[in-house]
């Protein structure tokens, strides 16, 4: 990516589970072009951070020329990576936008199960926070309302829309499960 060097840039956003497995990741920097490089990076990030306590406050660390800010929520780990000379507080704000918007969208039930069931919302939230490495929006409620396309459907309030969505989803998954158990 070739942008003005003064513009703050996010190198990657990661959402990993409590064992370091990837749930949703987005890489914007060329240094992790291959899946292997990404996996190695995720492994080292996880091993360096998993034993720290980043529940109350977001934590920060630095290694091999990058700065990583991270926050653990439930059984999930949110990471935002920036370059060594990035303003740490800007990265921190991106991280906040990232996890708080997801928390809003999932109504506080931030755990692996719900995140996987609503992976579309998570992916959209990431897409609304950072666009190709550039910070698009950091306000959690703005991100959440954009993900929910509030305003697109003749102004259905966000909460109601979400309820509808999760309900229909639950119905769909229930159907799926029944189908699977019948096939066994």
């Amino acid at each position: 990516m070739d942008v003005d060097p003064t513009v703050p840039v996010v190198k990657s956003m990661l959402l990993l589970d409590s064992e370091g497995k990837r749930i949703a990741v987005k890489y914007y920097a060329p240094e992790w072009a291959t899946v292997t490089a990404q996996a190695n990076y995720e492994r080292s990030v996880f091993s360096k951070t998993s034993r720290t306590n980043a529940r109350l406050e977001a934590e920060i660390t630095t290694f091999s020329d990058v700065i990583v800010v991270y926050k653990f929520l439930g059984d999930l780990m949110f990471y935002v990576t920036g370059s060594q000379d990035e303003n740490e507080l800007i990265l921190y704000q991106v991280l906040q936008g990232f996890y708080e918007s997801i928390s809003l969208l999932l109504r506080g039930a931030v755990e692996k199960k719900t995140v996987l069931e609503n992976l579309d919302l998570v992916l959209l939230a990431m897409d609304e926070t950072v666009d190709g490495g550039l910070i698009l929006e950091t306000d959690p409620s703005t991100i959440a309302s954009r993900v929910a396309m509030r305003g697109a459907d003749a102004d259905v309030p966000l909460a109601e829309q979400l309820r509808n969505q999760t309900f229909s989803k639950a119905l769909a998954t229930a159907k799926e499960q029944i189908a699977r158990s019948l096939l066994k």
């Binding site: 406050e57 977001a58 934590e59 920060i60 630095t62 800010v69 303003n87 740490e88 507080l89 921190y92």
Partner: peptide, 12 residues
């Protein structure tokens, strides 16, 4: 500060 990110940024 109570925020590690701020402490880190400052000390760095």
């Amino acid at each position: 500060s109570s925020k590690p990110v701020l402490r880190f940024a400052a000390v760095r």
